[in-house]
Design a protein around this nucleic acid. Sequence first.
DNA 1: ACGGCGATTACCATTGAACGGGAATCACGA
DNA 2: TCGTGATTCCCGTTCAATGGTAATCGCCGT
Lengths: 261, 261
Amino acid sequence: MANSDSGESIIARFVRILSAFDDRHQTMSVAELGRRTGLPVTTTYRMVNELLLERLLEREPGGEVHIGTRMWELVSRGSKMVGLREAALPFMEDVQSVVQHATTLGILDSDEVLYIERIGTHSTVVDISKIAGRLPLHATSSGLILLAHSPAAYQDVILARPLTKYTDTTLTEPAVLRRHLADIRQRGFAAMPGVIVPETTGIAVPVFGPDNTAVAALSVIVPRTEEHTAARVPVLMAGARGVSRALGWRGELKGTVRQSQ
Amino acid sequence: MANSDSGESIIARFVRILSAFDDRHQTMSVAELGRRTGLPVTTTYRMVNELLLERLLEREPGGEVHIGTRMWELVSRGSKMVGLREAALPFMEDVQSVVQHATTLGILDSDEVLYIERIGTHSTVVDISKIAGRLPLHATSSGLILLAHSPAAYQDVILARPLTKYTDTTLTEPAVLRRHLADIRQRGFAAMPGVIVPETTGIAVPVFGPDNTAVAALSVIVPRTEEHTAARVPVLMAGARGVSRALGWRGELKGTVRQSQ
DNA sequence: ACGGCGATTACCATTGAACGGGAATCACGA
DNA sequence: TCGTGATTCCCGTTCAATGGTAATCGCCGT
């Protein structure tokens, strides 16, 4: 695909470069970037310069580089994420104002939950969901909601894999999980106490798109000591219906998750 | 830079492809993408396939493509925008809840205002700011705030350019603008009635970063019939100070805009 | 001032990935 | 059935990309 010894395409290398940046390393020297990506020095510098030309990367006064404004702009303008986020945000705020704990919006991507948005306090509760962060399907309430509304064939694939047991309440038995999924699908919500972090409980409900598939999961993360699940589910559901309607949803029947890869 | 007849690098073509997607065209067939980018057919298909491999683009059931989740994820995770947005959002909500009109957060980028975030009703007021949208510096309250806190040399550059007169209240005279900028800088806010759309007034205040430079502008857009500028400025200022502090700002002195490019 | 070390830039011969025209194939509606 | 457009396949040409080596810059400690 490319001229490189390793047989990588430029695009692949570009992804490697982008991947080198995360919330912990949003800016770094080109040399460090080279080390993190494992690319040859010269190649790193050449590519960085090309990317700087297009403003996909930007150079700081000190010489360090970070992901460019242009990059964010192009992606935000053309991506469907922003639309989903914008549709959901007002309702998330409503939910958040009532529940008073972290509220998140997640989608199913590459067999994981990808969190699109999250609002609410950062510190009151131990919670590891962050924007653009990923968590496994079987160990989060959002993941279980998304899985529950997925085609059976897809569920089978996921359940057939080795499932990490994060805490002693994490479900890893395919048969048990399958029963849970049926439950979740029928009741319309997933409440999972401490499946990934012992101290917290996640409660999630599905958000539907126009084609009646579950496109996202709306969830709240509350301390396990004050779950009040029964009281909180209706709030979440109302919010999720609001989001669904904002997305053009009209129906009533339960649907299946739209797969993205 | 590349092997193409046009002498374009792959990166440049990649940008062309990304640019082909916007809020009006978030998904399209590969053929249409080829037409919009002006790239040769074969090249378009080859590149699209490469991008699909890396999940920078995604293919829909119908065969159309759109910007991939991976793309959004990589950028959101590594970009500083998200941090700024997250810091600002709670305060923007406070402002919005009081003002009850569109509230926006914009930064200075490439001699324009780039809107990072906006919340509030979509329909009550004619307003053209949208997330990842751009507007000129001299014709928006946010732009004037950012400009007012920029180095004099930069102001000169901008004011020396031909400035479009959108409405009859749009200021285009360098001398007049310069006086306004001084005013704005001193008072700490910019209130511009109908400079770009006759029916609305924008009110903006600066957000400062740790180094005491103005990193963003917080603004509200209200119908011109109910400005209440005097009453609204304090709310905005309180919000902006909150954001500034969340960003690590401590100082009190007025600073200058941090340039990006 | 000097010396050492890492970051950055400059140079350059090699080569295979990228290129794109053209034709075949597929998809779908008339 | 035909026609139009989207998509894939094929393939010879070529120069952009590659990455090693070496020079240069910049900073810190002595």
